[in-house]
Design a protein around this nucleic acid. Structure first.
Lengths: 133, 133
DNA sequence: GTACTTGCAAAGATTTTGCTTCCAA
DNA sequence: TTGGAAGCAAAATCTTTGCAAGTAC
């Protein structure tokens, strides 16, 4: 456990939004200006391999970047607004049931799941409605 | 509608597996050796913008490539075996219910959904079981 | 002390852009 | 004929690799 890794783990754990590797690197450089971009990639790959972080692409809203988040105890769904870019998270017991169905009907042992929905969030829908009226 | 586009659309429609841009380009070159890689990217972006193809990353099983598939009438779930790399598709009414729940509880108008699960397929689980016994 | 990690530079892989030429309608 | 599309080359992104030097334990 090096101080670089500690720093990166802290940043990911405490993040209030989804960051890609370069954003994470920029944040890390505030605390440790000598940290290298490569270290960020290597650490992310390690954490991903250990199952401690998830890699998302959030529907490729802005290019092919990959976003990272700390693996939480409960799986959740990402809702990405295609208009304003806001990302919401959603948990549901239906989602848990769906996973159970997959495991039973396909005898597939799920280790990681990712759900991403793109569309219009409530706020952006209201804006459209008021404009068209 | 150029012959290049016609060719690419035919290949995507008729594909029996998920291809990335380079694989699609290679297949296209069999029919039209002069077709350019850039044309493939541009056509894919256009089809994506029109909602005719979906862009997947299949959990980044092998690098950051993006895979493409023709948009079908019914949403489905991708099950990616982390061991053998096989991709299965899965449809479920529970999945449809889950989408309904999201739309109602968050007032989120879903335009595209992607579900990708990674784990062990039935075949790979059996192999592991027989080895450990 | 030693095995593992970092930083640096460079390469690799993937995708986009500028611009000219070509072609479908 | 003409506006959009394709081809080509080059650039821009994003990520990985090889290797020497450094560091946690």
């Amino acid at each position: 456990m090096t101080h670089q890794r500690r720093l990166l783990v802290q940043l990911i754990q405490g993040a209030d939004r989804h960051m890609d590797a370069v954003e994470l690197w920029q944040q890390a450089r505030v605390k440790d200006p000598t940290i290298n971009r490569v270290t960020v990639y290597r650490t992310l790959n390690m954490l991903k391999g250990l199952g401690l972080v998830d890699e998302l692409d959030l529907l490729h809203l802005e290019g092919g970047r990959h976003y990272y988040e700390a693996r939480s105890t409960r799986d959740h769904i990402h809702l990405a607004c295609l208009k304003c870019g806001r990302i919401q998270e959603f948990e549901s017991s239906l989602f848990e049931k769906l996973k159970g169905q997959i495991e039973r009907e396909r005898r597939f042992r799920i280790q990681v799941v990712r759900v991403e929905a793109g569309g219009l969030c409530d706020t952006c829908q209201e804006k459209q409605t008021s404009l068209s009226s």
